[in-house]
Amino acid sequence: MANQIDPTLNTVLGYIVDVLLALSIAGSFFTVLTFMLFPKLRTYPIRLILYLCMSIFLAQLFFYISFEAYDSIMCIPSALLLHYFFLADFVWTFCVAFNFYQMIVKRNRDAESFEKYYHMASWGLPLIFVIFISAFKKYINRGYFCYMENQLPIFLGFFVPGLLVVCANAVIFFFIAREIHDTLKNAPRSDKKEKSKEFRVYFSIFVSIGLSWIFGFIMTFFNDGVTDAIFLVLFSITTPLQGFLIFISYCLNDKVLSNYARLFGRVIPFCRRWEHLGSSTHISSTTGSNTGSSNSSRSDRSDRSDMSSSTNSISMTPIK
C-alpha cells in the first residue's frame, strides 16, 4: 500500500502530522492541567476525559521520543511505552464511550460505579499485551524509529485490538446519537437552541471516543492509490488532533474560563472582570408549557431534562 501513495504526499503529510501532534500534546496537557487545578470542575465524566488525555499525552509524547531515541539505550523502553499508552488510549476511548451510553441511553444514575473497572481494563489490558510481546523480544530499532517488528506483532498487538475498539465505539456512538436526536427532535420552538448544543455534544463525543481512527483502519483495506490516499489524508489530519480537539470541547467554555480568571486575578487584577462568566450561565432543564399539559407531555419534558443534564455534564458547554 505504501508504494501506491505519492511520496510527495507522504512528505507533506509528515510535516502536517508533526504540527498537529504538537497541538494535540499541548491540548491534552492543558486539559489535564485544567481539571487538576480546578477540582470542582472534575465531575465523574470529566475524570474519565482526564485519564484519556493522560494516555493521549503520553502516547503521542513517546511517539516523538521513539524517533529521537532510535540510537540510544532508550530505544526499546520508548517502543514499549509507545505501544502501552496507545493501547491505553484505545481502551480509555471505549470506557468513555460506554460511559456515555450508560448516562445518555440507559439513563444510569449509578454509572460512576463502573470507574474501578475502567481503570483495571485501561491500565491492565495494555500491560498484558506489552509483557507478552516483550517476552518474545519483538520491540526493535526499525531504523530511525523504535517500535514492534513488522507483520504479526503489529497485527495482533495493535491492529486487531484497535480495530475492535473503534468498531465497538462506532456502534455505541450510533445508539447515543439516535437517543439524543430522538429525545430532542420534538422539542418546542423555544427549545430549538438545543440544536446547536446537540451538535456540540455529537462533536465532543466523536473526538473523545477516537472515531477518527476509523479512517486509518479503513485505509488498510484499500490498495488502489486513490482511495487509500483519501483516507490517509483524513486520518493524518483528524487523529493527531485528538488531544487538541478534546481541549476545545471541554476547556473552552465559560465555566473553565471563569476559573482561570479567578486564578490569574490573584496576581493580575485585570483578569477578575471575567470571573462572572461561569456564574452567568444558566442551564435550563425544562421548557415552560401550558399548565394543562398531558402526562405524556410532562414525561417528554422529563426526558429532555435528563438529557440536558447528561449532555451538559459531558460537554461542559453551557447553554446561554
Rank of each mutant, 00 (worst) to 15 (best):
Y202L: 02
K138L: 14
F159W: 15
G265D: 03
S208P: 03
T238E: 13
S308F: 08
N186H: 10
D18N: 11
I154L: 15
L127P: 12
I104D: 02
A111R: 00
T31F: 00
A229V: 03
W92P: 06
V160M: 06
F35T: 03
L9R: 06
F217P: 11
S285Y: 08
F86D: 04
S285L: 13
I314V: 01
F136V: 09
S66K: 07
T11Y: 00
F57G: 12
C53P: 04
M148I: 14
F132Y: 13
E115G: 01
F114A: 11
I209K: 02
L61E: 02
D254L: 07
R142H: 13
V201M: 03
S296H: 09
N169I: 01
S297T: 11
S279A: 08
M316V: 12
I268K: 03
V17Q: 02
F235K: 04
L33N: 12
M148D: 11
L152S: 13
T93M: 11
R107P: 05
F244D: 01
F62A: 04
S55W: 04
F29K: 01
R272Q: 10
F90G: 09
N3C: 07
D224H: 00
Y51A: 10
D191W: 13
T281N: 10
L37R: 14
T11E: 08
I25R: 01
L13F: 02
S72N: 03
G143W: 06
P45Y: 02
M219Q: 11
A170G: 01
L245N: 09
D303V: 13
I76M: 03
S190F: 10
A177E: 07
L234G: 06
H276K: 15
D182C: 08
N312K: 15
V256S: 01
L164H: 10
Q242S: 14
F85D: 05
I140E: 15
M307C: 07
P77L: 04
D300R: 08
R42H: 05
G243T: 03
S190V: 14
Q151Y: 15
Y118R: 05
T183K: 01
F215M: 06
V91F: 11
D228H: 03
A22F: 07
T311A: 01
I49L: 12
K195H: 12
S313T: 13
S293H: 12
I248V: 14
Y44N: 14
S190H: 09
N290E: 10
R189P: 04
G157W: 01
N312R: 15
I248F: 11
E275R: 13
F67G: 08
F85H: 00
F114Q: 15
F175P: 09
S196M: 14
I5C: 00
D303N: 12
G225I: 00
S66W: 02
A135I: 14
F158E: 11
K195D: 12
R178E: 10
F235E: 03
N108D: 05
S315C: 06
H276Q: 15
L23N: 02
F264W: 04
S294D: 07
S28G: 02
Y250R: 05
Y139L: 08
R107M: 07
G278K: 03
A229G: 06
P188C: 06
D300F: 08
N169M: 06
I133A: 10
D6G: 03
F264V: 05
P240H: 07
T43E: 02
